[in-house]
């Protein structure tokens, strides 16, 4: 773990919605290897912070991000940086599964198509198959690739979204409470998948479930009221938190 490189480094990152500040100066470094989890009570700013890394906040009218965010040493908020390119490199999975109103195949092929990742149909088929396989969905859907993506179950939809994301070959996958709309069995499957994916991708996950963070993450950051309170190895956070607020949260006194 110690030889892992820094993927993101943030200095004094603030996020404001229509002038109202939601995050008050976050400094954090996110490592390339493994899973980083953001935890904290709802409204603490963890999801807003996650959207900083692929500049999804740009799509919200009135949202303003200040501070410095570097990915591999490159400022991703530099005016010369293309958010479209950034988002191809930093994928995102949302709270509610949001497959497109298209077939399963077209859902996965969408990203490769717009980015021109496949030279021909055979290559595209290959990308679709390998992405669905990596997302653990291939066996369930290989006979009905032409069916609509919205017809799948919630857990399958979320894995379809993950397949869709990895089809673009990102370096990082951001996950915003990806299991919150799923039942326990689908959640378990998803966690297994995240564990598997963490071998190939840098994963940053926001979760409201401390147990989930404990199970799947290598490092955990605790947010409270727009501030980063504590950031450490997950085992340290859960066994030996230094801040009393972290202590209160993980023991269930706040949140």
């Amino acid at each position: 773990m110690s030889q892992s490189k820094i993927k993101f480094s943030c200095r004094d990152v603030r996020v404001a919605y229509s002038g109202k500040e939601a995050l008050h100066g976050i400094d954090i470094e996110i490592e390339d290897q493994g899973v980083t989890a953001f935890i904290g009570p709802s409204g603490c700013g963890k999801s807003s912070f996650l959207r900083v890394f692929n500049r999804m906040n740009d799509t919200i009218p009135g949202c303003k991000v200040t501070g410095i965010v570097k990915m591999d040493g490159e400022d991703i908020y530099a005016p010369t940086l293309d958010p479209v390119l950034l988002r191809a490199r930093v994928g995102m999975v949302f709270q509610k599964p949001n497959p497109f109103p298209k077939s399963i195949y077209d859902n996965v092929a969408y990203g490769p198509r717009i980015h021109g990742l496949a030279a021909n149909k055979a290559e595209l088929d290959e990308i679709v198959e390998s992405s669905l396989t990596k997302a653990g969905l291939w066996d369930e859907v290989k006979d009905r690739l032409k069916d609509g993506g919205t017809g799948l179950s919630g857990g399958q939809q979320q894995r379809l979204v993950i397949a869709r994301t990895i089809a673009v070959s990102p370096e990082v996958i951001l996950m915003d409470e990806p299991a919150s709309a799923l039942d326990p069995i689908a959640t378990a499957k998803l966690e297994e998948l995240i564990d598997e994916l963490s071998k190939k991708f840098c994963i940053v996950i926001v979760t409201h479930s401390m147990a989930q963070a404990a199970r799947i993450s290598d490092r955990t950051a605790f947010f409270h009221m727009g501030n980063l309170i504590e950031y450490d190895q997950t085992s340290n956070i859960f066994t030996n938190p230094t801040d009393s607020r972290t202590q209160d949260y993980i023991t269930g006194r706040i949140g």
Binding site: T59, V84, R87, G91, P99, F100, Y110, I114, T165
Partner: peptide, 13 residues
Amino acid sequence: QSMRDGSYALGAT
């Protein structure tokens, strides 16, 4: 909006 978000997150214009 989640449809649009999904697409933007993949790097679509």
